Amino acid sequence: MAMTARDLRTDDPLDDFIAREITLLDVTKRVHVAGRGPAVIVMTEMPGISPEVARFSRWLRDAGFTVYMPSLFGRDGAVPGAEEGGRVFQRACVSAEFRAFAGGQSSPVTVWLRALARHAHGECGGPGVGAIGMCFTGNFALTMMLEPAMLAPVLAQPSLPLNEPAGLEIAPDEIAAVRERLEREDLTVLAYRFAGDKFCRAERFRAYAEALGPRFEGRVLPDSAANTDVAPFFAQHVVCPHSVVTAHLIDEQGQPTLAARDEIIAFFSARLGLARAAS
């Protein structure tokens, strides 16, 4: 997939995105937008929109999507530093927007993100919207399925709640409603994790599978597939393979992480009509 290479070791100016202040439900957040085509919402992992997260958004843009990348925490475009990233993580853990340690309920910020999906669909048209959550935001794409415009949820290493390996960061009535919709509309959920991930363990994927049945498609990558040349935040605070399509992705043909990226793009293309448009 052709894209001008950028240095992942320096802060990304995000100068090929339009930084928009979007107000929904009386709450304003900065959202970086790029591309044309059906909308896909990219929700950053900890500790913010890193150069690797931006790279993933550019891959989606170049595949024919309009990317909406909301700023949820951290310093946009920053290389994940150990100390700064640690402070961002600590603040997010006590923020009222997130439920870092509470299973069985959704983070309040997901209400705003559902409104963003509705807004993006109105701007971009097409059959609906896709979304990917990563790490701290990993489960958000599932809760967003309560919004009818959302058609294609991807969960990359969903890590909340942090203190309960088998916990699901969504209320029981909400996940029941999501499963009913998945079955009614013949939709599926894609999810990814590394086998040795200590933040998103096998117990969580088993819980998703139990809650969603065959509508949940979990992918587990071998630890040997993870990039080991990572930014200081990951080297110090994330001492296991974790970020499937960003920090731990190896951008080389034949690599399982690159195959996961391609599968996600194909999933969005099929659900949002790009595959039909291209055929």
Rank of each mutant, 00 (worst) to 15 (best):
V238K: 01
T44L: 09
I175K: 14
S159F: 13
D11I: 06
L168Y: 14
P241T: 05
R20V: 04
R9Q: 09
R55C: 04
A177F: 15
I18T: 13
C135L: 07
A226I: 00
Q90N: 08
V178P: 14
P256A: 08
V178T: 14
V42M: 06
T246A: 13
A277T: 03
L249M: 14
C240K: 02
Q255K: 10
E185H: 15
T143N: 13
V79H: 02
A78Y: 03
A195Y: 04
K29T: 01
P13W: 02
N163W: 15
E84H: 14
G167R: 09
G138S: 08
A82L: 06
A278R: 15
E169F: 14
T44P: 08
A152G: 05
V53R: 01
L160K: 11
F194E: 08
S106G: 11
G74S: 06
G218A: 11
M134T: 10
Q236W: 00
A207K: 03
F194L: 04
Q255C: 11
D223V: 00
T257C: 11
I49P: 04
C135I: 05
D76S: 02
E183C: 12
M43T: 13
G125L: 10
A19K: 12
E252C: 09
A177W: 15
R261E: 14
T110P: 08
L146Q: 14
A191G: 15
E210Q: 10
G104H: 00
E174K: 06
I170K: 11
A247K: 07
A211Q: 09
G85E: 01
V230W: 00
P161Y: 14
G48W: 07
S71I: 02
F140G: 04
A259E: 12
C200V: 06
Q255T: 13
C124P: 01
G213M: 03
G126N: 06
T228F: 00
P51E: 07
A259P: 02
T246W: 00
A100W: 08
D186Y: 13
N227R: 10
F234G: 00
H248V: 05
M134D: 08
S269C: 12
Q253D: 15
D12N: 06
L212P: 06
A34K: 00
E164S: 11
D223G: 05
M145H: 09
A176K: 14
A225Y: 00
V239T: 04
A82D: 05
